[in-house]
């Protein structure tokens, strides 16, 4: 009897944790989108106002970021400064795709970021400002929808985990 009780407690705790993991994804996505905005704004400043070349711009943005975004920026910077003849588009895409799996972003978010690589460094400063603004606006929109999704789903998944665990425990008791 005690063993049964202990095991069902383990089941409930485990499924509550699974629910927690699922609900964390929404909060992490919002946080990552916010940090991406900061990163892109810093990148914009580097490119537009300081006129630094892209490898240096990416490197200095990477210095003040952390987590996956830092890794993406560092990878881009190092691949660009290796001078292997890859375009910024290709380098940005490889760096993004390498870390996209471990981030909480959806494929839409990644698509917006990929668009950035296609236009980066390919026109004059005025156009670059426009492109950066466009991408930033799109990311802001994504952040808004991520917020509403978070409000809707975060508590749901928490509750679902606990209740699902209780259900399994009752069924096998």
């Amino acid at each position: 009897m005690t063993l049964k009780l202990i095991l069902s407690a383990v089941i409930v705790i485990a499924s509550a944790m699974i629910g927690n993991i699922y609900s964390m994804k929404y909060a992490i996505r919002v946080a990552q989108l916010r940090r991406l905005q900061t990163a892109l704004q810093m990148l914009e400043t580097e490119v537009i106002y300081r006129y630094s070349p892209l490898p240096e711009a990416f490197k200095s943005v990477a210095l003040s970021m952390k987590g996956e975004i830092q890794c993406i920026m560092e990878d881009t910077a190092s691949m660009l400064s290796d001078r292997n003849g890859y375009t910024i588009d290709h380098v940005w895409e490889t760096a993004l795709k390498r870390y996209a799996k471990s981030m909480a972003l959806t494929s839409d978010d990644i698509g917006i970021l990929l668009n950035l690589g296609k236009t980066m460094g390919s026109s004059d400063a005025d156009n670059q400002i426009k492109y950066f603004e466009l991408i930033l606006n799109q990311i802001r929109e994504q952040e808004k929808s991520a917020e509403t999704e978070k409000a809707k789903n975060q508590r749901l998944y928490n509750n679902l985990g606990i209740l699902g665990g209780l259900g399994i425990a009752i069924l096998i008791l």
Binding site: N153, R155, L156, L163
Partner: peptide, 10 residues
């Protein structure tokens, strides 16, 4: 309870 939670989140 599950019903309540799910209905609340639409």
């Amino acid at each position: 309870i599950l019903n309540r939670v799910l209905v609340q989140s639409g």
